[in-house]
Simulated scan of single mutants.
Amino acid sequence: MSTIREQPIFSARAHIFQIDPATKRNWIPASKHALTVSYFYDATRSVYRIISVGGTKAIINSTITPNMTFTKTSQKFGQWADSRANTVYGLGFASEQHLSQFAEKFQEVKEAARLAREKSQDKTELTSPALSLTSPQILPSPIISSNGPGDDKLFRSQSADMEMTTERERIKKMLSEGSVCEVQWEAEFFTLQENNNKLVAALHEANANVEQWKKQLAAYQEETEALRLRVSELESQRGASDLPIVVKGESTPALEELEQLVKAKDEELQQLKSQKGSHWEAGSECEETHQKVQDLERRNGDLERRLTLAERSLSETLSEREKMHQEVAKVAEIMDMKIFELSELRQDLAKLVESN
């Protein structure tokens, strides 16, 4: 957690991942949603940190050093390694612009941390000059070969060990790049799957509303038809009756009331027809949404195929790495045998020199 002496200098929203400590290849989501990731500066100690808090827990607490590197592995994903925390952090951003801004700020803060370290080293040298003068600089000394016949081959064996170490580093780099691509595809797949679920839910809701409006329209139509039949019956009874004028006059208000009711229902029917047109428009929007869902499903299928190919290539790389380890083991056994033979030859030569 940041203290009062630290001040935020830059913030961004991102999905946070951490490398799996068991496999060192797969990413583990550190939060369910995007969180705020901020750069903090401690003026009293001249220290820069990247901090992100989820609830009451600090998910990221990484002190930036000059030897750190922020790597963009895709258009929306970047990562950096923290040796002090013994982990690798990954950030997935909503856009390429946000990733670029975060990477630029990382480079600025890294340069500022380098300058701060140089200033602190200069101050240390100025405050303790005797220490800097009296302490000798110890350089790694190479192996000095003697005139013996076996020392030159020992030096060549060390060169072979250095070459094998370089080859191992190259294989580790290939494996890390493969895992990064795999995580990138997994993050894109999860994002598309979430958008797909949202669109399906919206489509179901729109279909439910359309069905409800259709039922309401049918009920109004049935009620209107019933009123029309009632009015026609009353008019036929009125025309066929031979009642006096007074009786006809008494039945007139009921007919007027029914006519007004029919008129009101006709107006409601017109409104429902206009609403029906808007519902058909909503239906067309639902069709477009359904088409988008199908497109997303196709894209999901493509991503799954790409992920399968990536896993297959990764397994092939692992098999090649296993073969390389076996070859290195064989070379190491041969080198041990040669070294043993050279040591025996050297002892024999030493005995020969002593006997002469």
Rank of each mutant, 00 (worst) to 15 (best):
K273C: 02
S284A: 09
S284R: 02
A254T: 06
A43W: 05
H204T: 07
Q216E: 13
S284E: 07
S274Q: 11
E322V: 04
I64N: 08
V210L: 15
V262S: 06
I334E: 15
E211V: 00
W80V: 01
Q79R: 09
E169Q: 12
P29V: 00
E194C: 00
F340Y: 05
E188I: 02
V109L: 03
N196P: 00
A113V: 07
V183P: 00
R117P: 01
R306A: 14
E108L: 07
L115P: 03
A206M: 10
S157Q: 12
G178E: 13
Y41T: 04
I16F: 01
I334C: 04
F189T: 02
G150T: 14
S46A: 14
Q275I: 04
A219N: 10
H279L: 02
R170L: 13
Q107L: 11
N300R: 12
L309K: 03
W80Q: 03
D152Q: 12
S128H: 13
C286M: 10
G249P: 00
T44K: 13
Q158C: 11
A30F: 01
P21K: 02
R298S: 07
I28D: 07
R228T: 09
K263N: 09
L203W: 01
K123W: 02
K57C: 04
R45N: 15
G239T: 06
Q260K: 13
S135P: 00
E311D: 07
L131G: 10
F93I: 00
H279Y: 05
A12S: 12
N26T: 10
A202S: 13
L139C: 07
G78M: 01
V88Y: 01
R238W: 12
E250H: 05
R25I: 07
H279A: 06
I59T: 12
